[in-house]
Computed example of a mutant assay.
Amino acid sequence: MDTMRKLLMVLLLALGLTSLQAAPVFTQLLPGAQQVGQGVFKRFGWSIYEARLYASGGRFDASKPYALSLTYERTIAGDRLVQASLDEMRKLGAPVDERPEWAAALSQVLPSVSKGVTLTGVYRPGEGAVFYEQDKETGRIDDALARMFFAIWLDPRTSEPSLRQSLLGMNQ
């Protein structure tokens, strides 16, 4: 067994790999998940996060499950993430002011982040979404809120159309 382990390490080093990475936990909820696209969200020239969209077979269809991962480049308080999300949803016409429970629900799934932290939401149409910080579940939200939350990035009326195009693989 020791010889096999050494052989594997030599092979990994030869391939430029130092460790084997396990598949993200969300792939259990999204069989056959492959990256559709990716892009960087910037504000005033500063990178805020890198976004990646995943779907089964690498093909996005809003009526089928998908995952959106955001890997942050800076520290942001959870309450700021929640407020920014609500503001963007409001711009898209979501009934944020009539649904005060949405702020509390988002507060449960959107923790404070720092550089290198990845938040992932897995949306399952008709069911809602489950969220992860790294690979640890932070919580779940219902379908109505989930649809509006993911619209921030995927709705054609998004405030960041070039990021949307990158996520959907239209810029590649």
Rank of each mutant, 00 (worst) to 15 (best):
100 P>G: 05
128 G>D: 01
153 W>C: 03
131 F>Q: 00
29 L>D: 12
96 V>R: 04
143 D>M: 06
144 A>K: 09
132 Y>K: 08
69 S>A: 15
149 F>N: 03
82 V>M: 04
66 Y>M: 07
16 G>H: 09
134 Q>T: 08
110 L>A: 01
20 L>T: 08
58 G>H: 06
108 Q>K: 11
116 G>D: 08
96 V>Y: 03
18 T>A: 12
48 I>E: 06
75 T>D: 12
159 S>N: 13
118 T>R: 04
127 E>Q: 14
121 G>K: 00
69 S>G: 12
71 T>P: 01
22 A>I: 05
13 L>Q: 15
95 P>N: 08
158 T>E: 05
81 L>N: 00
74 R>W: 05
133 E>W: 10
47 S>D: 15
144 A>Q: 13
130 V>T: 14
101 E>S: 15
29 L>F: 15
84 A>P: 05
5 R>P: 08
138 T>F: 00
145 L>W: 02
2 D>L: 10
129 A>H: 02
64 K>C: 11
66 Y>S: 07
3 T>S: 12
75 T>F: 10
42 K>C: 13
35 Q>T: 07
100 P>W: 09
137 E>V: 14
107 S>V: 02
11 L>T: 10
135 D>T: 08
170 M>L: 13
113 V>T: 05
92 L>V: 09
128 G>F: 06
19 S>L: 15
147 R>I: 13
83 Q>R: 15
160 E>V: 10
123 Y>W: 13
161 P>S: 02
121 G>Q: 02
154 L>K: 12
138 T>P: 00
160 E>D: 15
136 K>H: 15
78 G>D: 00
131 F>S: 01
7 L>R: 08
93 G>M: 05
116 G>P: 07
94 A>H: 03
165 Q>A: 13
5 R>K: 14
167 L>D: 01
60 F>K: 07
21 Q>L: 14
100 P>F: 12
43 R>M: 14
103 A>K: 09
124 R>A: 15
121 G>Y: 00
96 V>F: 06
1 M>E: 07
91 K>L: 14
158 T>Q: 05
52 R>P: 07
86 L>Q: 02
94 A>R: 01
141 I>G: 02
24 P>T: 10
30 L>N: 00
79 D>W: 02
83 Q>L: 05
23 A>M: 13
11 L>D: 09
81 L>Y: 00
168 L>N: 07
143 D>I: 01
54 Y>F: 14
107 S>K: 03
34 Q>N: 11
147 R>T: 14
69 S>T: 11
65 P>K: 06
143 D>S: 10
172 Q>F: 09
89 M>T: 09
2 D>Q: 11
98 E>N: 13
9 M>A: 14
144 A>P: 02
138 T>Y: 00
115 K>A: 15
64 K>E: 14
21 Q>W: 13
146 A>P: 03
31 P>L: 10
54 Y>V: 04
128 G>E: 03
160 E>I: 10
104 A>Y: 07
106 L>T: 00
33 A>P: 11
150 F>G: 09
27 T>F: 11
64 K>L: 15
156 P>Q: 02
145 L>V: 08
113 V>I: 11
161 P>A: 04
9 M>I: 11
107 S>M: 05
139 G>Q: 01
99 R>F: 08
91 K>G: 05
50 E>K: 14
8 L>H: 13
145 L>G: 04
63 S>K: 14
71 T>D: 02
82 V>D: 03
55 A>N: 07
138 T>L: 01
92 L>D: 05
130 V>A: 11
13 L>S: 15
18 T>K: 09
